[in-house]
Amino acid sequence: MNLHALRLFHTIASTGNVTRASELLNISQPAITAQIKKFEKELSIPLLKPNGRGIALTDAGEKIALLAKRLFAVEQQIDQFCHEYRDGTNGHIRLAATYLPAQFLIPAWIAKFKQQYEQVEMTITTTNSSDALKQLLQMEVDLAVYGGLAEEYPDAIQTEELFRDELWFVVAPNHKYANQQVSLGEMMKEPFVMREEGSSTRERLLALCRTYSVSKPRITLQFNGLHEAIMAVIAGYGANFVSSLVVREYVQRGELCRVYVEGVRLQNTIAICTRKNEPLSAAAANLVRIIRQSGEDAAQ
Rank of each mutant, 00 (worst) to 15 (best):
T33V: 09
D87M: 11
I272H: 02
Q138G: 06
G263K: 07
V246I: 13
S22Q: 07
G185F: 11
L137Y: 00
M188W: 06
V214Q: 09
K38V: 07
L105H: 07
R258H: 13
G295Y: 01
C257V: 13
Y212P: 01
L47K: 01
F169E: 04
S22A: 12
E23M: 10
S243T: 06
G263W: 04
K69P: 00
C82E: 15
L162I: 02
S281Q: 02
C273Y: 05
E278A: 14
H4K: 12
R164Q: 14
L3Y: 11
I110H: 04
I106T: 05
W109A: 02
S281A: 02
R53Y: 12
A73N: 13
I219Q: 10
T19V: 13
G54W: 10
C257G: 11
R204M: 15
M122N: 04
G16P: 03
E75A: 13
D79G: 08
M194K: 09
F223S: 13
A178P: 12
G238E: 07
A285Q: 08
A144V: 06
R248G: 11
A65R: 00
F241H: 13
V193D: 07
T159W: 01
K176R: 15
E152L: 14
P50G: 02
G52I: 11
S215E: 05
G225F: 13
P217G: 02
T123R: 09
I12L: 07
L167S: 07
W109N: 01
I45P: 00
E203D: 15
S14T: 14
V264W: 10
A150E: 14
E296G: 00
I230K: 07
Q293R: 08
R210M: 07
V171D: 06
T274C: 11
H227C: 06
L71C: 09
A65Y: 00
V251L: 14
E161F: 07
E151Y: 14
A156W: 00
H227A: 13
E84M: 12
R195T: 14
K189N: 14
F9I: 02
I27Y: 00
Q80E: 15
Q29N: 11
K216I: 08
E40H: 00
N174M: 13
T125S: 10
W109V: 11
S14I: 09
L67Q: 12
